[in-house]
Amino acid sequence: MTDLATINITEKQLDLLLSGLRYVKSAEKLRVEEPTPEYVRSRSEKLEEIKTLENTLNSSPRNQSAAQI
């Protein structure tokens, strides 16, 4: 992923976004499906993308009034 977007959100909005990502990650982990190689690969890719996004959001510089992402 080489394209980056910059948005201004408040700390509260950032916390809400991270909370939503945790929910999505949990839902993906708890999803019950036949463990075919395709499903396992797809699930692993999704979980890795979520982890990367969480890390990006958590490491973004934060100001008092807004977080730059």
Score class of each variant (00 low, 15 high):
residue 26 S to I: 12
residue 18 L to Y: 07
residue 29 K to C: 04
residue 14 L to S: 02
residue 45 E to M: 07
residue 50 I to D: 01
residue 14 L to I: 00
residue 69 I to C: 01
residue 43 R to T: 07
residue 12 K to W: 02
residue 34 E to S: 08
residue 7 I to T: 10
residue 8 N to R: 05
residue 16 L to D: 14
residue 14 L to Y: 01
residue 28 E to Y: 09
residue 45 E to C: 03
residue 35 P to F: 05
residue 66 A to C: 05
residue 40 V to C: 09
residue 51 K to C: 04
residue 62 R to F: 00
residue 67 A to V: 14
residue 4 L to K: 07
residue 40 V to T: 15
residue 64 Q to V: 08
residue 28 E to C: 08
residue 25 K to R: 13
residue 60 S to R: 06
residue 56 T to H: 13
residue 45 E to P: 02
residue 38 E to M: 08
residue 2 T to K: 02
residue 63 N to Q: 12
residue 69 I to W: 13
residue 42 S to D: 12
residue 25 K to V: 00
residue 67 A to I: 15
residue 66 A to T: 14
residue 46 K to G: 04
residue 10 T to L: 05
residue 4 L to V: 06
residue 20 G to A: 09
residue 38 E to H: 06
residue 56 T to Y: 15
residue 22 R to L: 05
residue 18 L to F: 05
residue 1 M to G: 05
residue 49 E to V: 04
residue 40 V to M: 14
residue 62 R to M: 01
residue 14 L to K: 03
residue 15 D to N: 11
residue 61 P to C: 03
residue 22 R to D: 09
residue 64 Q to G: 04
residue 15 D to I: 01
residue 16 L to I: 10
residue 54 E to L: 04
residue 13 Q to G: 01
residue 29 K to S: 06
residue 43 R to Q: 11
residue 63 N to T: 14
residue 43 R to G: 02
residue 6 T to F: 07
residue 16 L to Y: 04
residue 40 V to A: 09
residue 4 L to E: 10
residue 39 Y to P: 00
residue 52 T to L: 12
residue 61 P to T: 09
residue 17 L to Y: 15
residue 55 N to T: 13
residue 47 L to M: 03
residue 12 K to E: 15
residue 11 E to T: 06
residue 13 Q to D: 10
residue 8 N to P: 00
residue 19 S to P: 03
residue 15 D to W: 01
residue 23 Y to M: 14
residue 22 R to S: 09
residue 30 L to G: 03
residue 46 K to A: 13
residue 25 K to T: 05
residue 31 R to H: 07
residue 56 T to S: 09
residue 29 K to D: 10
residue 56 T to R: 08
residue 60 S to F: 05
residue 22 R to Q: 11
residue 30 L to F: 09
residue 33 E to H: 13
